[in-house]
Amino acid sequence: MKLAPTAPLPPVPASERRNAARRIRLMPSPTVTERIVVALLWAMAAITIAVLVFIIGYILLHGLPHVTWSFLTESPRRMGREGGVLPMIVGTVLVTGLAVLIAAPIGVATAVYLTEYTAEGRLTAVIRFGADCLAGIPSIVFGLFGFVFFAITLGLGLSILSGALTLALMVLPTIIRTSEEAIRAVPYAYREASFGLGSTRWQTTLYVVLRSALPGISTGVVLSVGRSISETAAVMLTAGSALGLPDSLFDSSRTLALHFYYLAQENISEANAYATAAVLVMAILAINLFAYWLMRRFIARGGHHA
């Protein structure tokens, strides 16, 4: 690209000028293209939100009228054609609660180990690899594993305990990752200040790091609860599908999601299917709102940017 003076340009032939003008007219200007593209992109966003609203609205509209007090407090009769979903609510709470109770301490401890107690090396790479792979495994494979390992090999049978252990393994990567992120968000200066006041590493971890990261960690745990409630394939193969109220953790129990699947897939009762789905969706909505609120509080505390 020389800028040296050159001879004056030869005149452009008239035909060439016309062609150039036509080409320009055929190609819309960048600003026009941008307008079209942005409109298209916004349309996509609008469609996505519309789909979300449609799904939730459709389920709630069809389901909520059937959700009565007796539906929530009665046991199903005639395979779920009549009656309510109390045993399924109990089963869901037990399986989910137990799964998160098992996974949360393990996940948080793993995150603490990765961030506070070791340097990046081969071991941390292996642990992260394990967590990443676990996160990718399909739930049906978790189901197969839970069935052969917890139910058969360990002899727990198709039970709440088998289901909970399987789900715990499933949500473990989520808890590890969200906890790790929350812990990393705690400023290094807090740790330094704490060490300077004569704390041991464990005291700093407990009183400064985990305490500050608690809202972030809780968000991850709450989202794991949501994931456990939604899960169907894995609990089908591990917790079984008994309709009655469980007497102990070694009993089989059907979760809400699985109950809904049977009602819908086998055309047992449309009204009850919609009602069960509505209960499920309400639970998921509540959990997501709660997680969102926790996260906002975590960010809003702002103390973390000192």
Binding site: T115, T118, E120, A131, D132, A135, R177, R184, Y188, R191
Partner: peptide, 9 residues
């Protein structure tokens, strides 16, 4: 985020 390799300390 899961592939990060930077330690906090």
């Amino acid at each position: 985020p899961e592939l990060q390799t930077q330690p906090v300390f």
